[in-house]
Write a protein that binds this DNA or RNA. Structure first.
Lengths: 243, 243
DNA sequence: CGGTACCTTGACGAGCATCAAACCCTGTGG
DNA sequence: CCACAGGGTTTGATGCTCGTCAAGGTACCG
C-alpha cells in the first residue's frame, strides 16, 4: 500500500503543499486501497456510501442517469480527484461514479474522515475548497454545453482533459496523454449524439487541433486548441488541495 | 437591521435548524445590510470580493460571460442563498452575480467569517454542505441542458424556480409566485435563444402547465409540470443550512 | 412624442439528431 | 482455423429542432 507520506501525486504542482504532520494524519485515516477493472461502478446514485476515495491512478466518469436511459456525464475523474464528498455531506449520492480504465483508489472511512475534519480547521477548509472547485468545473461545462457549437464544445473538453492529465504526469511523450474514454462518454458529457461527436472529432483532427485515437490524445499545439475551445481557460494552473 | 435571532427566513422548513447560540454568533459576524436596485452587479467575475452575502429578499442571477458576449446563467439566486463563497475559498470569483429585482442582503466580512469557521466545526461543515448543494444544482442544470429538448428544459427550470420560491414563503396565492426575471435570463440559463424560449413558454401555457406573465409564475398542477420536466425531482424538499 | 426595454410572431435555413449500415478489433467456441 | 458475436468507431442519408433574421406590439419614461 502506498503511504500518504510518499504519495506519488503530491509532487505535482497543481496540488497544495502539505506539511509532514498533515501527511501522517492522512495516512492514519487511510483505510486501504481499492483496485478496480474498467466499467466498475464505484458509487451509485442514491446510495449512502460509507467510503470516500482519492484517485491514485486511472480514469473514470461521474454521471447522472435519466429515466429514459439518457446519461449526462457531469465530469471526468482523473488522478488526484476526490470522490464521494456528496454522500459525505448530503445524505446520499446525487450521481454515479464509474471507472473507464483500471483504477487504483485510496479509501477513507466516512466517519473517521469527518471526525478528523472536526479537529482540523485547515483540512475542513480544504474540503470546502474542493467542493467549490467542483462546482466551478461543472459550471464551466454548463457554459460550454449551453452556449457553444459542437466543435467548440469538443475542443474545450479535449483541452481540459489534456491539461488535467498532463498536470498529473501522464504526458509521457510531449503533446500526448492516455485517454481511455469512449467517444460515447465524450458525447454524453457535451450533450451531443455519438455520431456528431465522431464527425466533430474528425473535423478537429483534419484541422490539426487534436487527434484522439487508440486510447491516446495528441495535441500538437495547446494554444491553437485553446483558441478553438472558445473560453479563455481561466484555470489552466488552478491549484487544489489533495486529500 | 434584521437580527439573525429573528431572521424571517429561518422558520421555513428547507433550512437546517440553528441553536440559539449559533444565531447569536452569526449576528456578531453580520457586518450590515445591503439593499440594491434591479440590475446591480453584486459580484464581478475575476474580482476578489471582501464580502459574502446571504440573500434576505429579492432575486438575482449568477452568470458567466464569454468573450463573444454570450452569457450562461449558472443559477438563479433566491432568498436564503449564500453568495460569494467562491471568492472566499478560491482566490477570486469565477462568475458574476446580479440582481433582477430589488434585493436585501445580509453582509459578512470575509476575514471575520472564515475566522469564525476556524473555531466552529459545525459551521465549517455547513459551508462544505452548501458548496456541495450548489454543485448538485449546477449538475442538474447541466443534465437538463445537455440531454433534454427545449420544452422539457423550460418546464424543469420553471418547476425548480416555483418550488424554491414557494419554499421561502413567496406563494401568496396558491399556485402563484413572483418571478421577476426576463425571458432572456431563462433563455441564457437553459441554452436556448430568446425567440425559442418565448415560443416554448407559449407552448407550456397552452398546455396548461405553467403561465409566466407580468412578473408572476402560475402553476396549476405541480405534478403535471414535474412530469413534463423530465427529471424526477430528487430534491423537492432538500434541506440546506442557512448562514 | 420619440426612445428604450421587453415580449411576441412569422419565415427561413443550419446544425445536429436519428436511422441505417459497414468496418474494425478482440474474444469465444466449434 | 474459421465462424460468429459484441463493443466500439466510422460514414452516408434524411429531416426535425432550434437559431437567426426581421418586424411589429406594448408598456414605460423622459
Amino acid at each position: 500500500m502506498i503511504k500518504c507520506t510518499q504519495c506519488p501525486l503530491r509532487r505535482f504542482g497543481i496540488f497544495e503543499p502539505f506539511s509532514r504532520e498533515d501527511e501522517e494524519a492522512m495516512l492514519r485515516l487511510k483505510a486501504g486501497e481499492l483496485v478496480v477493472a474498467p466499467g466498475t461502478t464505484l458509487l451509485r446514485e442514491g446510495s449512502k456510501a460509507a467510503q470516500l476515495y482519492t484517485v491514485l491512478s486511472g480514469m473514470g466518469v461521474r454521471y447522472k442517469l435519466l429515466s429514459d436511459g439518457q446519461r449526462q456525464v457531469v465530469n471526468f475523474v482523473l488522478p488526484g480527484d476526490f470522490v464521494g464528498l456528496q454522500a459525505g455531506v448530503m445524505d446520499e449520492m446525487r450521481h454515479s461514479v464509474e471507472s473507464v480504465s483500471d483504477m487504483r483508489l485510496c479509501v477513507f472511512d466516512r466517519l473517521a474522515f469527518f471526525g478528523f475534519m472536526q479537529n482540523s480547521p485547515e483540512r475542513a477548509f480544504d474540503l470546502t475548497w474542493l467542493a467549490a472547485i467542483e462546482e466551478h468545473l461543472v459550471a464551466e461545462a454548463l457554459t460550454s454545453v449551453g452556449q457553444q457549437p459542437a466543435s467548440t464544445r469538443v475542443a474545450w473538453a479535449l483541452l481540459r482533459l489534456f491539461r488535467r492529465a498532463a498536470a498529473v504526469g501522464l504526458e509521457r511523450e510531449p503533446g500526448r496523454v492516455p485517454m481511455p474514454f469512449r467517444q460515447q462518454d465524450l458525447a454524453d458529457a457535451m450533450g451531443l449524439s455519438l455520431v456528431h461527436t465522431n464527425r466533430t472529432l474528425r473535423d478537429l483532427r483534419e484541422r490539426g487541433l487534436a487527434t484522439w485515437q487508440e486510447g491516446e490524445l495528441t495535441v500538437p499545439d495547446l494554444d491553437r486548441l485553446a483558441t478553438a475551445a472558445g473560453m479563455e481557460d481561466s484555470d489552466g494552473g488552478l491549484c487544489r488541495p489533495l486529500l
